[in-house]
Design a protein around this nucleic acid. Structure first.
Ligand code: NAD
Ligand code: NAD
Lengths: 255, 255
DNA sequence: TATTTGCTGTGAAATATTTCACAAGTCATT
DNA sequence: AATGACTTGTGAAATATTTCACAGCAAATA
């Protein structure tokens, strides 16, 4: 009993300390909030899951357009992408546009609207670090050339590789990452180096002012800098996810 | 006015029809629901976002374990993975286990618990279709060999490639997909063929009883069969997502 | 022209997910 | 032993997201 009581006293002290801390944070927060509100914060923000779906949709529309389709309805999208038609319509409604016409959405119009809202209109310069098997596979990717991304540079630490590689993309030794990234105004990077080199490469890239990284090496890249987005594409993680979903799904069926 | 009224009558009729349809669905649904309930459906299901995070966490723990760490706290995980510590604890709490000890979670214990709950304990056989640049990069992946997945087969339509390729994984011509997949009891597949071949390869795989596919070709794979999960890894989609997040983030800052 | 069909767009309701707050535990230090 | 500094685990509150239902429009059809 006695010991417990002392424990509470200790807890109480800590709470007081926490409370003070909270007050400070709250004060700070209110100031920020008020500033934000006063700046007429009217723009409704799009939920993150909706953004992800819209990206998928955008890629899909691109595909459809190439096949010559001009119109598509939310019901058709549901069938192809396995995204509920309600959901598709809701996502599109976040864009505040009107594509209503017979036979569904006008693909060209919808695509350009998504691009406008999500920021795909300005072509961005991207680079690849690591020109091994994976790196060259990406260099040869069928659709990058015609996309809104301009593959501006490739980097590798192996000088021999730089000399023998055959590609239209200019390649550089990796100690030039910093200067080339700055000079060419490259904003996004793809990492395809072995796991143990990935973090140091990422640090260099972030130091050079890169805003986003797609990382294929099987490590979790850390970034101290806020405002830098990292997307780790680990194939084992994908396999794990499939396994887990299969398990969850099957147990849904069996009980 | 008049035409509008007729419109309403028409709407009303449609509603009646819909109502009937709904009744039929509802009836069907109730029957299913009751069956499910009677089977003592007590297991609480893990939210899908939590499953995704747990997969990432699992990969991360694997990495930590190799580096020799034995313990990790939710706060440390927050720093490394950018998943809030509240969130980490909540996700882990879905697993119904108790890892509480000083200094945080015991990595070994936590890993095996996640594996048990998410179904990573049984090794699964996987295969790769398309042994070009990307395919061979995956064959050479640093961590697959030591993972819970057994790379059981590779397929390619190009016979010359099959003869020249150097790997410990047995390779087959792609017309043998169906028989090999069945014989070896392969459950998951990775597609690394050009875009125009991807859907037909997927159809073959699904026909052979595959349960999950990771698709690297830049097309959206469709599956008629329910219970088959597909994960499309499109690098352009990833780049799009980064672009969109950057835009959303920056507009958050500026308003 | 009179109906019917099919589709979008969107508030509001229903769900799902995240965040919070705190009891309760462990261990190191005084 | 007394205290303090760490933990985790978890209902409940707060938010976020999805689903629904239907007005309203445009085109197709009878
Ligand atoms: N989907 C996936 O997640 C996936 C698929 C395949 C491979 N991978 C991973 O991608 C990575 C690369 O695979 P790969 O098969 O192309 O390997 P690779 O060995 O063929 O190529 C690696 C390249 O990186 C270069 N490199 C090494 N250190 C470097 C540095 N510090 N700076 C610049 N370049 C450097 C090397 O010279 C080499 O050219 C591996 O980590 C692999 O596990 C991931
Ligand atoms: N992260 C990504 O999303 C990413 C990265 C790189 C490449 N890619 C894509 O991956 C795919 C493959 O790229 P790659 O560079 O390895 O191409 P590649 O041309 O080097 O290899 C393709 C291989 O597939 C084989 N193939 C063709 N048709 C086949 C069939 N019907 N059945 C079995 N095998 C068949 C070919 O013989 C060849 O060996 C491309 O679609 C590319 O766009 C995606």
């Amino acid at each position: 009993m006695y010991i417990n009581l002392l424990g509470y006293v200790c807890l109480f002290k800590r709470k007081c300390k926490n409370l003070l801390h909270k007050c400070r944070i709250l004060l700070n927060y209110s100031v920020k909030k008020i500033t934000a509100l006063s700046k007429n914060m009217t723009k409704s923000k799009i939920p993150k899951p909706a953004i992800e779906r819209l990206c998928t949709l955008y890629r899909f529309l691109d595909m459809c357009e190439e096949e010559g389709t001009t119109c598509i309805s939310s019901a058709q999208i549901e069938k192809q992408l396995h995204i509920g038609s309600h959901n598709v319509r809701k996502d599109i409604s976040y864009l505040n546009l009107s594509c209503s016409g017979s036979g569904g959405y006008n693909i060209k119009k919808l695509k350009s609207q998504i691009a406008a809202q999500l920021g795909f209109t300005q072509p961005q310069n991207i680079c690849i670090v690591g020109l091994g098997r994976l790196g060259t596979a990406i260099l040869a990717h069928e659709r990058i050339a015609e996309s809104e991304y301009n593959l501006a540079a490739g980097f590798d630490s192996n000088i021999n590789k730089l000399e023998t590689i055959r590609t239209r993309v200019p390649v550089f030794p990796s100690y030039e990452i910093e200067s080339v990234v700055r000079q060419m105004n490259i904003t996004l990077a793809i990492i395809a180096v072995p796991a143990d080199a990935a973090q140091s490469v990422a640090d260099k890239l972030i130091g050079a002012g890169i805003r986003g990284i797609v990382n294929f090496a099987p490590v979790v890249i850390k970034t101290g800098k806020s405002g830098v987005f990292i997307n780790n594409v680990d194939i084992l993680g994908k396999l794990n996810l499939l396994t887990a979903l299969l398990k969850a799904n099957s147990s849904e069926i069996y009980q």
